[in-house]
């Protein structure tokens, strides 16, 4: 290890252990948070089943990709899970539409206090969904990624740049960031430019007037669930490729996802994305042990003995919570002016 101050290696270290992981984690959260935002804007309730729905979508991907691998339907270098997503998407759409038909639609029709009823109902759906996932796949953690693990590995990077500190780009990270950019662009294009997308915004903005304008509410709701299926399945699969699949962990993703949504301002898509990256970066920056980083940057006499970790990794979900609390105290509308009070 060098004894002089070494900014380039310090930066490489930070990129490898903080920036890349936070970017991909943030992207996964953003996709989940957008799904919550969509349900909130159109169906007017906070969907507590989001984490478990992501587990459900991932479960479908795991089953289908398992079958594809057993049949030898794979492409070298590409995670089979990615190829399984379209099929999983169909299954997820059917599941969500069925749940809407059996559970949520009734409360829309009787015009119940949608947020409070929706939360209760979605908690019911959360347990049903979580139960199915655990019944099918068990509760223990598993990995389902195959194909190349790295776009480039630490060794390749070191050989290429000659740096002491390497950077690896995992396939899952690369996929997550690329797919997230594509999906978010698609969503914004869809909402801003297409007639159906505009109709959804109109419905969210002023439901009565949307009905008077001849917008079909059932169609808006249907398309919303299809979008939610898309975002949920992909967010879940990408998270699983990156960090492995465990039902309880998915269930708890609810905390950072809701923190993202509320930090950004409930109902605002841009806010949800900004919130997701804020939460992801806070979580990783605060739980990262800075010892090596500081060794690169400080003269020998000041090298730290301890790990220089601000918060233990076991408390990472507490960070989402603390961010949530700070936002609620300082600016309950979130960064992008969401809706603070029930209508």
């Amino acid at each position: 290890m060098s004894e002089s101050i070494d900014i380039i290696n310090a930066f490489a270290l930070l990129t490898n252990f903080v920036i890349l992981p936070a970017l991909s984690y943030g992207s996964q959260l953003a996709l989940g948070a957008l799904a919550v935002t969509l349900v909130y804007s159109i169906l007017r309730f906070s969907n507590f089943a989001q984490g478990d729905s992501m587990a459900f979508g991932t479960m479908l991907t795991i089953i289908i990709s398992g079958y594809m691998i057993s049949r030898g339907w794979t492409i070298t270098g590409v995670p089979t899970a990615l190829l399984a997503i379209p099929m999983a998407l169909i299954g997820m759409s059917i599941y969500l539409l069925t749940m809407d038909r059996l559970v949520y639609r009734y409360y829309r029709k009787i015009k119940a206090k949608q947020n409070i009823i929706g939360i209760t109902a979605s908690i019911g759906v959360m347990f049903v969904t979580g139960g199915i996932v655990r019944f099918v796949l068990g509760a223990s953690a598993q990995r389902f990624g195959d194909g190349e693990r790295f776009i480039f590995s630490v060794r390749e990077f070191k050989a290429f740049t000659g740096l002491e500190q390497g950077i690896a780009l995992k396939t899952s990270q690369f996929l997550t960031i690329t797919v997230a950019i594509l999906l978010v662009s698609f969503l914004f294009y869809f909402l801003q430019r297409t007639k159906t997308g505009k109709a959804m915004r109109a419905y969210s903005d002023n439901t009565e007037l949307a009905l008077l304008s001849g917008i079909d509410p059932d169609k808006v709701v249907r398309i919303t669930w299809l979008l939610v299926a898309l975002f949920t399945t992909i967010a879940g699969t990408l998270y699983g490729l990156d960090k492995g699949f465990a039902p309880q962990q998915y269930h708890l993703l609810l905390l950072p996802i809701f923190a993202s949504v509320i930090v950004g301002g409930i109902g605002s898509p841009i806010g949800a994305i900004a919130g997701a990256f804020l939460v992801a970066f806070s979580e990783i920056l605060l739980t990262y042990a800075y010892k090596k980083f500081l060794i690169y940057l400080l003269p020998l006499s000041m090298h730290p003995n301890s790990l220089v970790q601000l918060i233990g990794t076991e408390y990472k979900y507490a960070i989402s919570f603390v961010i949530l609390v700070i936002v609620l105290i300082i600016k309950p509308t979130g960064l992008f002016k969401g809706k603070v009070l029930d209508e």
Binding site: K195, K198, A199, R201, A202, N206, L209, A210, S213, G214
Partner: peptide, 19 residues
């Protein structure tokens, strides 16, 4: 509540002609 507040004037008109 006779407009779509977070849509542009033009989008409001477009939504009026939705059908």
């Amino acid at each position: 509540k006779n407009v779509f507040p977070s849509m542009t004037v033009e989008e409001n008109l477009e939504m009026g002609g939705f059908i």
